[in-house]
Design a binder for these strands. Sequence first.
DNA 1: CGGCCGGTTGAATCTCTTCAACGTCCGTGG
DNA 2: CCACGGACGTTGAAGAGATTCAACCGGCCG
Lengths: 240, 240
Amino acid sequence: MDRKDIHNSEYPKICEACEARHRGICGALTPDELTKLSRAARQHTVQAGHELMAESEPSGSYANVMSGVVKLSKMLIDGRQQIVGLQFAPDFLGRPFVDENRVSADAASDVELCRFPKAAIDSLIASSADLERRLHQQTLKELDEARDWMVTLGRKTAAEKVASFLYLIATHIDPSIDDSGGSAQFDLPLTRADIAYFLGLTIETVSRQLTRLRTSDIIQITHNRHVVIPVLNRLRDRMG
Amino acid sequence: MDRKDIHNSEYPKICEACEARHRGICGALTPDELTKLSRAARQHTVQAGHELMAESEPSGSYANVMSGVVKLSKMLIDGRQQIVGLQFAPDFLGRPFVDENRVSADAASDVELCRFPKAAIDSLIASSADLERRLHQQTLKELDEARDWMVTLGRKTAAEKVASFLYLIATHIDPSIDDSGGSAQFDLPLTRADIAYFLGLTIETVSRQLTRLRTSDIIQITHNRHVVIPVLNRLRDRMG
DNA sequence: CGGCCGGTTGAATCTCTTCAACGTCCGTGG
DNA sequence: CCACGGACGTTGAAGAGATTCAACCGGCCG
């Protein structure tokens, strides 16, 4: 159990500043394992709007999200679309055990990834119970988030949905959030269309509800994307 | 890896007929482990409508669902309710790693459970990678189901939601389903109110949509609960 | 400059909800 | 035995909330 992780120098250089080494799955690895994995890893950037993985298609790699926001979505045959999850750093991207993805993954904003060959992770999973544990816990977290969102989708009004969305983004993006209320500000990583896909609404309804929140002085919006929430608790009151 | 599972006699008697030994989590255990666990296990029945575990409360036990249907639900502070999952035999019930439940669990129909003390499972998880793997996979399955349902909640019409619900129940309950279309019949394990909570609709809308499916000869309903679906593919066509 | 993309706003429409009445089944108690 | 009440379900009419369709605005890129 002694991982000798006192000396930073034992970690590969590219991992040193990486959040995934602390809160992400790489935290489950020994310096040795991490070193081996880092040799197979490749960091790169994907521009907003580009696809990372396609629904119902095998994917040859996993990845850690290092920065930016990834949207996971599903489509009905007639094209209706629903975003079923958002991933932020240092979330793990990809589906262990099966070849086929059940969702498609797209870069909502510009996204930095650290990609691994599927085989590298799969063999690590087989040998490291810690890693499997970490992945299991991320899956449980995603399940919790999915179920929370089901309540939003099934039971909340459009106004409550938009407020819930802004709160979700604020708590995941704004580094200065301390949970005790206060204020927040950030750039929306999603277009109005993406927000609508996430909330099960239309673009127009999202736009109208944002306008309502703005004219009620709950939020300020500049340049279409930059949002200021002076009093988070006033937003929470509108979340249902 | 040799689990010596050729001779049935090596398994505890109460486990012999249990589905969880094959498709459920107990399939990950050696006969020895299973024997120890079975000593701590207690089978019992919970009547429809009774609560199994409360939201936001610690639960001292886990359980396998042996028969019947369990509904997992969440509530908003003002009482609005959403069912976020249904569990059938031989699903595992309970949340590893944390004390607090994130959902409440209620018996939708009469439910037979096989309960285990939390500590018994937790220590098995620590020592058996197979068990953790099995739990991880059940979690992944639940995540897939949750995301599928998010599409239904966010994007489908009331008519499509009800059709999707009937199809879900048919494929999970009717033992004669062979996936290749054909027909199905079963007793609905949920009341109209439960169906509404599951679909993000009102009771009245559910009732009206069931009537529409009935008058369109897609389904037959007798005694309010017994459903016959002569041609499953005709139902699928209405699922969106 | 022109056209496109992302976003906002308005008016008409439609779907689902709300409120209310009614029907059936079933267990209980007079 | 039958009357009563409650749980569950259906149906109708009116209303609210979200969608649809359309026009318009500003910024950006070729």
